[in-house]
Structures are given as structure tokens and as C-alpha cells.
Design a binder for these strands. Structure first.
Lengths: 231, 231
DNA sequence: CGAATATTTGATAGCGTTCAAGGTACGTGG
DNA sequence: CCACGTACCTTGAACGCTATCAAATATTCG
């Protein structure tokens, strides 16, 4: 989520560079609900997702949790690990389904970033896209109402992970109402209510940890800025 | 705001690198309310702020505006200009007071980033700090109530631009209630009401585009509590 | 001084959270 | 394969925070 459906991270690199990178990578797999790393832990390396989806969230002191982005195949997690600064993960990363990754321990990542400028450049690009995605979220959260925000989130998810399914676009990521709430900045109750309402109108289909958009048209109307009276 | 009061950008570089960089920089000055660049414009270069404060905000389609961060002396704006990607500014930058900057046209910045690895590294660091700051804001916006958020903002501003002033910490940036509202994710009315209330309790002093914290203690109490749950 | 900008305050309505109380799908072990 | 525990979901009711609108006031600056 957030960044506008970028091409696979590796596609920006030459075949030679890719070979070089993968030679130093270890494969790591995670099952749904497993943790890739926890907020506050020392940064030990970076991940490139090959399959599955990872929920990257930030935890608050009161135990609340806000999703920063969902990272799917071709996306990098903890890209900053390749550069100097942060000592510890500022966010939490959990697998939503079965996830396959390449992993580079931090020293190797640093080394490779120094030797392969294209790798460093691609990582920087990755980081800036994340920033933009989050800025967009911040603006939406600050200026839009819940229904509008939820509609935006769903449209973005459909673009990112939508699969055609019986005349609807199913979001191919298992997301609970709670997850959607943490992405939208609301409660699971409000999400449930809104989706029920939209389902009645035929705009969406919902199930347990499942959403499909039946009318992109209608969703876009809900996501559009609220109409103002003129006078 | 946002990033945790980082040291001056140039302090991470060697004297030789700094000399080299400044040799290619042009000085640019702006008066209060002047625009450094507009959202949507082609990115023409990057700025290092020497004096003054710049408001970096994102505009929405309905004309609403949300402040992403305030950048003061030692901070870089549009750091991405030194790297490949974005074609256009994703945000708007306006001077809040008189601002003095070094400016590097994009081609020069790219060239320098290639030649001076420490420069590229420092820019990357700058970008990651921004990201973290915005992530923090996003979490606060999603989970905290207006008073708590406003208190957080004020404390952060005090840390970033506070000057001792007659037993209070004055925030040395001209910020209207509107500005504060756009940082907090609320309306200028609510900001006005809250500050009036806090002023009566002796926690703050307010004036036209002026805020001073009289009790950091009290502000921290307002920023901390709320044992609510969500997530 | 006049114009533009910034602020205060009240009244009102409504969105969305909170709390409570079931209901429903899922997968795991017996 | 069934039963049971766990997670997930739905819906109602009520309240309170905050946006909204309106109008008057204050401050700054040219």
C-alpha cells in the first residue's frame, strides 16, 4: 500500500547485479502471523519479499497499532538497513499469509550497497516511495472522513493486489476488519458497519478476512472529495 | 518537527567535502510567505536551510492543506532531488519567516552525490529521518485525540525551536492557529479553544502567531495520558 | 487610518467511538 | 469426521468529541 504499485525491486538492476546480490542472500520463509522483526529490535538486515504480504505497523505506548503499509512481492522491507543510521527497527513487521523472502544480513547489505551503486540507488528509490505513500496517508487521515478514507484504502489495495473473481475485484490479501481499521485510522466496528452497508448496496462483497470490490465506479465516488454546496 | 532534532546536515561531512559542496551552491533567500517551490512543479534542485523555517505541506484536491514538517536551520528540503526518481515535487514549501538557503540545481546535486559518497549518505539519512517523523505523526493522528496531539506537537516544537523567554519556553517560529491546526489534524477553531483553555490554566501563553509553553510538566501530562485502547 | 489577516467565542449537529451482547467461520485434536 | 476453542464478525444504543457555521473582535502593516 502507500507507494503506487512499483515494479519489482530487482527489475531496476542488471542481470549481473542481481546474480551478485542473490549470491549473498539467504532464503527466509514465514507463515501467516509470524513476525519478521519487532519494533525496537536491533536492525539485523533487510528483506526482499518474493511471495506473500507483510504488514508493517507501528505500535504505540498504549498498545495500539497503526499499519504503515502492506508490502507485497517485489518490495523491500527495512531498506535503511543498508545505510548507516538507525540502530533499531522503528516498526513491526508481520506476515499476513505465507511469505517467502530473500534476506541480507546488515553487514552484507552495507557491503553490497557500497559495491553496487545501482543497488544503493534502488534502495533509496524504495525509501522515497514509502515516504510518499505515508505522506499521502497522513493527508487523507487529516482531511477525510472515515468512509472516504476506507474507500481510498480499498481502491489502493485493489490496484495493488486485486484479482478478477466472478465479476468483482477480490483483494488477494487476508485482511481482518481490524487490519482495515488500523489502516484507515478507525475502529473495527466502524469498518464492519460501513462494509455491511456497502455490501447491501452491491458495492462490495465481504467475508471473514476477505473483501472484493464489485463496483470500482461506486468506490471511486465514495473516495472522491465530498461535494460542497455552492452559494 | 517530525525528526528528532538532528544535528546540522553539514556536520556529518568533512571540511573538504563541505568546501566542495558550497563551491557549487547558490545562495537563495526568501521572505515570509514566499514560496520555495510548489507541489506538482518539476523538481529543479534541493535546498539546505541556513536560517529561518520552512513549512512543508501537502495540498489536497479540495484545497485543504496538511503540514508534513517544519524544516529549520541545518535541514535539507527536497533531498530526493539528488537521486533519480520523482519528477515533480510531491509537496509544497513556503517560508514562514525570512529564510536563507543554499541551493543546488538538480544536475549539480546528482553529480555531487555521485562524487561524494558522504553527501549521498547524509541525504539518505535525511530522508529516513523524515520518514520516521511522518510515521510517528501518522500513528499519533490515528490513535490520539486532538488535545493530546496538539500537546505533542507543541512539545516537539519547543524542543526544536524553543527559546527561554521570561520563565517560559517560547516557540521561535511564527505559527498561526491555522498552521497548528494543519499540523495537528484539526481546525483552527479547536486549536484556539484548546490554547485559550490551557492559557487560563497557566500552561501556555498565546498571541497572534505566537505560542510559549509555561509548564512543560503540564504539557507532558496532556500529551501522555488517555488510557484508551484501540488495536 | 483602513485593509488584510488572525483570533475568539457561542450554538448546534452529527460522525464515529465506546460498550455490550451475541453470532459465525475456522482449524485442530480427539 | 466431529467437537470444541479461538478468532473474527455483526448490530444496537448512547454519549461525547469536534467540525461547522456565524458573528464579532483583535492585531498588524502599509
Amino acid at each position: 500500500m502507500g507507494q503506487t504499485t512499483e515494479p519489482d525491486f530487482l527489475s531496476a538492476l542488471s542481470a549481473a547485479d542481481v546474480r551478485r546480490l542473490l549470491a549473498h542472500a539467504e532464503e527466509r520463509r514465514f507463515r501467516g502471523r509470524e513476525t519478521l522483526f519487532r519494533q525496537g529490535e536491533p536492525i539485523h538486515g533487510l528483506f526482499l519479499i518474493r511471495e506473500g504480504t507483510v504488514k508493517v505497523s507501528q505500535l504505540g505506548p498504549d498498545g495500539n497499532e497503526v499499519v504503515m503499509r502492506l508490502a507485497g512481492p517485489g518490495r523491500v522491507i527495512a531498506a535503511v538497513a543498508a545505510f548507516a543510521q538507525p540502530e533499531r527497527f522503528p516498526v513491526d513487521a508481520k506476515a499476513l499469509d505465507n511469505v517467502a523472502t530473500w534476506f541480507w544480513p546488515r553487514p552484507a547489505a552495507r557491503e553490497l550497497a557500497r559495491e553496487l551503486p545501482a543497488f544503493a540507488a534502488a534502495l533509496t528509490h524504495e525509501i522515497s516511495c514509502q515516504t510518499q505513500g505515508i505522506q499521502l496517508r497522513l493527508r487523507e487521515l487529516a482531511t477525510e472522513r472515515v468512509p472516504q478514507r476506507l474507500a481510498h484504502i480499498l481502491l489502493r489495495l485493489a490496484e495493488q493486489a486485486g484479482v478478477q473473481d466472478d465479476g468483482a475485484v477480490r483483494i488477494d490479501i487476508p485482511l481482518t476488519k481490524q487490519d482495515l481499521a488500523q489502516m484507515t485510522g478507525t475502529t473495527l466496528f466502524t469498518v464492519s458497519r460501513l462494509l455491511s452497508e456497502w455490501a447491501e448496496k452491491g458495492l462490495v462483497e465481504v467475508g471473514r478476512a476477505r473483501v472484493a470490490l464489485r463496483s470500482l465506479e461506486g468506490m471511486r465516488r465514495l473516495a472522491a472529495p465530498a461535494q460542497r454546496e455552492r452559494g
